[in-house]
Nucleic acid binder design. Structure first.
Length: 376
DNA sequence: TATACGTGGGT
DNA sequence: TACCCAAGTAT
């Protein structure tokens, strides 16, 4: 809760520590985020948990609309726990890192069924739940339960590395950073301190061209004194990214349905719907090698161009074949999905691109009014 | 410790 | 265009 000592207050001035500077700065900013409770109000652990999972490796801007949608749809952890997994995955579609959605749902079920819907209030207990790792456990403990925990995310890594001029490479330097951070965390308002540090990293102590002139910690900052702030934290070099290719089969039934298939629970896009395709390989496919993988008998037409999509660890390049099949065609291990409800399928972005590509090239049933079909 | 795992925006 | 980066976790 905010109680920064005002000039007219009888409260003795707080010592000039980095934590107090961050807290004073945090109070001054008054930054509002959808999941942030007003000053002095203890936030709902369900909201804190939901937002923290959505924010894992994800920007505030991307997560915000999903956070809102989830709360409207599933106001309590019991509601989320009672939802079918397919619905949760579809609602998560487009946000990425789909294991988060599977773990979110699993976690909701544990909290609902084993904890009576009440999130545990300690880092240790939180860490046992699916999808809650070192960062998220500490963040929930600090923000929702006022525990003196020290969440260390990408923002904090950067702020702490600069504050102490830690030049060792990440991820190796992480424990060093954690040690430094431990001594900064205040007993009072640890949650606000954590959020203040994250805000600082997001708005002032940014990766390129940090705004040191505006920084409340500038006088304490060793990297600023040494002139190294701009290039910290140091990071290990990354591996080159291969390209994987496939042929995707856009299979349209003449009553206006398209064939989709659910992916296995583990691995890329686990549990999500996809456009059936060959395996994804670096070698790629020619017509003769691809044809046997088609999900149905049809006159296949290769659509012009390629769909390209960038994943974290490989580039994805898709050739789309379109084919029409009659009503009654066996979906095999897939399912027929009405084209005019494709937006409800919850396709991950790569698959949405394939669908848009096919629709753009007219691969829809003849006669019907499918011109306005939109994926997603 | 290293790798798999999405996506969109910024430079 | 290409790379970096974002409130990381699981294995």
């Amino acid at each position: 809760m905010a109680d920064g000592a005002s000039p007219h207050s009888d409260t003795p001035a707080r010592p000039d520590t980095p934590a107090n500077r961050v807290l004073a700065w945090y109070d001054r900013q008054g930054r509002r985020l959808p999941w942030r409770a007003p000053p002095g109000v203890r936030p709902d652990p369900y909201h804190v948990w939901l937002s923290e999972v959505m924010l894992q490796q994800t920007s505030v801007q991307a997560a915000a609309p999903y956070f809102h949608d989830f709360l409207v749809r599933w106001p309590t952890v019991h509601d989320l726990a009672a939802a079918p997994q397919d619905a949760v995955l579809a609602a998560w579609a487009g946000l990425g890192y789909y294991a988060r959605a599977r773990n979110l749902h699993a976690c909701a079920r544990v909290v609902s069924e084993q904890y009576g819907g009440v999130f545990p209030g300690t880092e240790k207990e939180l860490r046992k739940l699916p999808g809650i790792g070192p960062y998220t456990g500490a963040a929930i403990a600090a923000i929702a339960f006022d525990q003196p925990a020290a969440p260390l995310d990408g923002n904090l890594e950067r702020v702490v590395a600069r504050l102490f001029d830690v030049r060792a490479e990440l991820p190796g330097a992480k424990e060093t950073l954690r040690e430094h951070l431990r001594f900064l965390v205040p007993e009072d308002r640890p949650g606000d301190f954590a959020q203040g540090m994250m805000d600082l990293g997001a708005t002032i102590c940014v990766p390129a061209s940090p705004k040191c002139m505006l920084c409340p910690l500038a006088e304490h900052c060793a990297a600023r004194a040494a002139g190294t702030a701009e290039r910290l934290p140091a990071k290990a070099a990354k591996k080159p990214r291969p390209t994987k290719r496939c042929v995707a089969f856009w299979t349209v039934r003449d009553d206006g349905c398209v064939l989709l298939r659910r992916r296995p629970q583990k691995g890329m896009l686990g549990g999500m719907l996809e456009v059936p395709s060959t395996d994804w390989t670096e070698a790629g496919w020619d017509a003769d090698s691809a044809r046997p993988h088609a999900p149905a008998n049809a006159q296949w037409r290769e659509l012009p161009g390629r769909v390209r999509h960038g994943f974290t660890h490989f580039a994805f390049e898709i050739t789309v074949w379109a084919g029409a099949v009659p009503a009654g065609t066996d979906p095999g291990d897939g399912q027929w999905w009405p084209l005019d409800r494709l937006a409800d399928a919850g396709l991950p972005t790569a698959m949405r691109k394939i669908a848009e590509h096919a629709i753009k090239h007219g691969a829809v049933p003849e006669g019907g009014d499918f011109a306005a079909i939109r994926a997603r």
